[in-house]
C-alpha cells in the first residue's frame, strides 16, 4: 500500500516536471520579448543571454567611450578601462583615476562591468515611431462595431430559426450551414474586386461590413434558443408583446451567456485579423494594429528593442482581458471546437 502511494507521488512529480518544462517553452518567448523590449541595442546585439537588461559601463578616455572591466591582479579587484586588445588573448587595461598606469592581463579572465539598466524609453519611442494610438483606436472601433452588428444580426436570424415557422426554413438553414465550408482565403480576390466596384476599398465599410454576419454565431445562438421553452414566445405575443419586444425584453436578457461567449470570440478574431485589412486598406489613418505591426516590422527592421516594445503593448491588452474571462473562454473553446 505504502509503495503504491510512493509510486503515485513519483509519477505525479514526473508529470509536474514535464508540464513545467512545457510551460517554460510556452512562456519563454514572451519573457524574452519583454526582456528585450527593455534592452539597449548594444545588449541585444551581444552574444550573452541576459534576462535582466544590462548595459556595459563605459568611461570617456581620450575622447573615446571605452568599456570598464572588473580586473583582478595582485590579489585585489579594481574597475579598469579596456584600452586595447593585444595578441594571444591579452589586453591592456588602465586605471581611469590614474591613466598612466597600465597592466596587461588575459582578457577572457576579466569580467565586464554591466550594471542593470532598463530602457523604458523604448516604449514611447516605439509608440511614436508609428501612429499606434490611431491603430489601437481603429482596431477597437472596427472590432466593436463588427462584433455588435454580428451579435445582433446573428441572434435575429437564430430567433427566426428557433421561434418561427416559415416556408423553406430547413432549406435556408442548410444553405447557411453549407457556407461554413467555404474557405475565407479563397475569397480574397473576388471580394476585393467586389469592394472595388462598390468604391468601398480603403474605408471602414470594407473592414466591417463583410464581418457583420457569421453563420457560426447563428448556429450557436439557435442551439441556445432551442433550449428555451417554445411557449414563451406564444405567450408573450398573445399578451400583446411585439416580436421585437419579445426579442429585446425576453430573449436577450435570457441569453447573456451566448452573447458574451460569442462576443469574446468575435472580438478576438477581429482584433487579430490580418490578411483582409492588409489588402483592403491603404491609408495610414485606417490601418489596424496588426497591419501596423507589419509596417513597423518592415520600417524598423533592426530596431529590435522598439519592435519588442510594440509587440508587448499590442499583446498585453489581450492577455489582461484573457485573464478576466479565461474560465468561460477555455470552456467554450472546447465546446465549440467539438460541435463544429
Amino acid at each position: 500500500m505504502a509503495s503504491l502511494k510512493w509510486e503515485n507521488r513519483i509519477s505525479k512529480t514526473i508529470i509536474h516536471v514535464m508540464l513545467i518544462f512545457g510551460s517554460i517553452i510556452m512562456l519563454f518567448p514572451f519573457l524574452w520579448m519583454i526582456s528585450t523590449s527593455l534592452k539597449g541595442n548594444e545588449s541585444i546585439l551581444s552574444d550573452s543571454i541576459e534576462m535582466i537588461p544590462r548595459d556595459q559601463k563605459t568611461t570617456l578616455i581620450d575622447g573615446v567611450e571605452r568599456p570598464l572591466y572588473e580586473v583582478s591582479f595582485n590579489n585585489e579587484q579594481k574597475e579598469m578601462v579596456l584600452l586595447r586588445s593585444l595578441n594571444e588573448g591579452m589586453a591592456e587595461f588602465i586605471d581611469p583615476a590614474n591613466p598612466d598606469e597600465s597592466v596587461v592581463l588575459p582578457l577572457t579572465k576579466q569580467k565586464p562591468v554591466r550594471p542593470m539598466s532598463f530602457h523604458w524609453q523604448n516604449y514611447p519611442d516605439a509608440w511614436n515611431a508609428q501612429p499606434f494610438g490611431r491603430y489601437f483606436l481603429n482596431t477597437i472601433f472596427v472590432a466593436s462595431v463588427s462584433v455588435l452588428c454580428q451579435l445582433f444580426f446573428s441572434s435575429l436570424a437564430a430567433y427566426a430559426f428557433a421561434f418561427f415557422r416559415f416556408p423553406f426554413k430547413n432549406a435556408i438553414f442548410i444553405f447557411l450551414l453549407g457556407t461554413m465550408m467555404l474557405p475565407q482565403q479563397a475569397l480574397l480576390v473576388p471580394n476585393y474586386v467586389i469592394l472595388a466596384k462598390l468604391h468601398w476599398l480603403d474605408t471602414y465599410l470594407a473592414l466591417i461590413v463583410p464581418f457583420t454576419a457569421s453563420v457560426y454565431s447563428v448556429f450557436f445562438f439557435r442551439q441556445f434558443f432551442l433550449t428555451l421553452p417554445r411557449d414563451l414566445h406564444d405567450a408573450a405575443t398573445v399578451d400583446g408583446c411585439s416580436h421585437m419586444g419579445f426579442y429585446f425584453r425576453v430573449l436577450v436578457p435570457l441569453s447573456l451567456p451566448p452573447f458574451l461567449t460569442l462576443g469574446i470570440f468575435s472580438f478576438l478574431g477581429s482584433w487579430n485579423a490580418f490578411i483582409w485589412p492588409l489588402i483592403v486598406t491603404n491609408s495610414t489613418h485606417l490601418r489596424v494594429l496588426q497591419v501596423g505591426l507589419a509596417y513597423f516590422l518592415s520600417d524598423a527592421g533592426t530596431e529590435w528593442g522598439l519592435l519588442m516594445a510594440a509587440s508587448t503593448f499590442s499583446i498585453v491588452p489581450l492577455v489582461i482581458g484573457y485573464f478576466f474571462v479565461q474560465k468561460r473562454f477555455v470552456q467554450s473553446q472546447a465546446m465549440t471546437g467539438l460541435k463544429e
Partner: peptide
C-alpha cells in the same frame, strides 16, 4: 490568444 503578427516578430 495573442496575435500571430506580434509573436511572429518575437520569433
Amino acid at each position: 490568444i495573442t496575435s500571430i503578427n506580434a509573436v511572429s516578430i518575437v520569433w
